[in-house]
C-alpha cells in the first residue's frame, strides 16, 4: 500500500476478506453458474416473445419490478455477509444499499447473459431485448445488454466478480454517508483484495482499470432507470402505488 489514505493490511487479511466475499457471493448469487449455463439453449420462442410484447405496458413494468426486487433481496443478503458491513451504522447500510443494490444486479446480470445470442435469463428462459419492447425504454434495455456484454468480455471469475460487486456496494462517495471514512477503509481493503486476486490469477493491470471505468457506466445505467421509472410513474401513479413491490418503491421512490 502507499500514501496515508491506504489502510495497512497484511496479505493474510486480504486473503481472508477475499474468501469471505467470495463465499458471501456464492451463497447469495440467486442462480448457480451451472444452472444458468445449462439453460442457455432455452430461449423464448417467437410466440412467447409476442406474448410479452402484447402485455399491457403496466403489467410488463410490474413483472420487471418484481424480478428486480427479487434480485435485490439477494444483494441485500450478500451485503449483510460482507465482513464489516453490519458494523457500519444503519444509516450508512441503507445509503449503500439504496445507491448500490441495483448496480450489483447489473453486474450480476453478466452471469446470466449469453453473448452468442444476446439474451439474458428472465422469467424462466433466455430473453433478447425485444422481449422488453412494451416497456417503452429501448435505450435503457440496450444499455443494460451492452453493459452485460462488455462485462462478459472481461471473463471475470466468480471470485473476481464477487470482489468487484463488494467494491461497488462499498462506494465511499455516496451522498448522505455518516461515517464516510469507515466505508472508505472497507472499500480500499476490498479494492486491495481485488487487485491481489487479479495478480494471483495473472490478469493484467488493465483489467482493474477497465473495471474502475465501469463505475461511471453503472451510475449512468441506474440514473437512467430512475428517470424511466419517474416517467412511468407520472403516467401510471396508481399502478406503482398499488401494484409495485414495496421494497422497489422504497429503493427507487425518491
Amino acid at each position: 500500500s502507499s500514501g496515508d489514505m491506504s489502510p495497512t493490511v497484511s496479505m493474510d487479511e486480504l486473503e481472508h476478506l477475499a474468501q469471505n466475499i467470495s463465499k458471501s457471493h456464492m451463497e447469495t448469487c440467486q442462480y448457480l453458474q451451472e444452472e444458468l449455463q445449462q439453460s442457455t439453449w432455452q430461449t423464448f420462442l417467437q410466440d412467447e416473445v409476442e406474448c410479452y410484447q402484447s402485455k399491457p405496458k403496466e403489467v410488463m413494468w410490474q413483472l420487471c419490478a418484481v424480478k428486480i426486487t427479487e434480485a435485490i433481496q439477494y444483494v441485500v443478503e450478500f451485503a449483510k455477509r460482507i465482513d464489516g458491513f453490519m458494523e457500519l451504522c444503519q444509516n450508512d447500510q441503507i445509503v449503500l444499499l439504496k445507491a448500490g443494490s441495483l448496480e450489483v444486479v447489473f453486474i450480476r446480470m453478466c452471469r446470466a447473459f449469453d453473448t452468442q445470442n444476446n439474451t439474458v435469463y428472465f422469467d424462466g428462459k433466455y430473453a433478447g431485448p425485444e422481449v422488453f419492447k412494451v416497456l417503452g425504454c429501448d435505450d435503457l434495455i440496450t444499455s443494460a445488454y451492452d453493459f452485460a456484454k462488455s462485462m462478459c468480455s472481461l471473463h471475470l471469475s466468480e471470485d473476481e466478480l464477487a470482489l468487484f460487486s463488494a467494491f461497488i456496494l462499498l462506494s465511499s462517495d455516496r451522498s448522505w454517508l455518516q461515517e464516510k471514512s469507515k466505508v472508505e477503509k472497507l472499500q480500499q481493503k476490498t479494492q486491495l483484495a481485488l487487485q491481489h486476486m487479479l495478480q494471483k490469477h495473472q490478469r493484467g493491470e488493465e483489467i482493474l482499470t477497465k473495471l474502475i471505468c465501469k463505475v461511471s457506466t453503472l451510475r449512468g445505467l441506474c440514473s437512467r432507470h430512475t428517470e424511466t421509472l419517474s416517467a412511468f410513474r407520472a403516467v401510471y401513479p396508481d399502478i406503482v402505488r398499488a401494484h409495485f413491490p414495496p421494497l422497489y418503491k422504497e429503493l427507487f421512490g425518491s
Binding site: Q73, V76, E77, Q90, Q93, I94, L97, P246, L247, E250
Partner: peptide
C-alpha cells in the same frame, strides 16, 4: 426509519436466500 421500513427489516432479519 419509517421511510425504509422493509430495508430495515431485511437488514435485521437473519434471513437466508432460501427464505426469500
Amino acid at each position: 426509519k419509517e421511510k425504509h421500513k422493509i430495508l430495515h427489516q431485511l437488514l435485521q432479519n437473519s434471513t437466508s436466500p432460501v427464505d426469500l
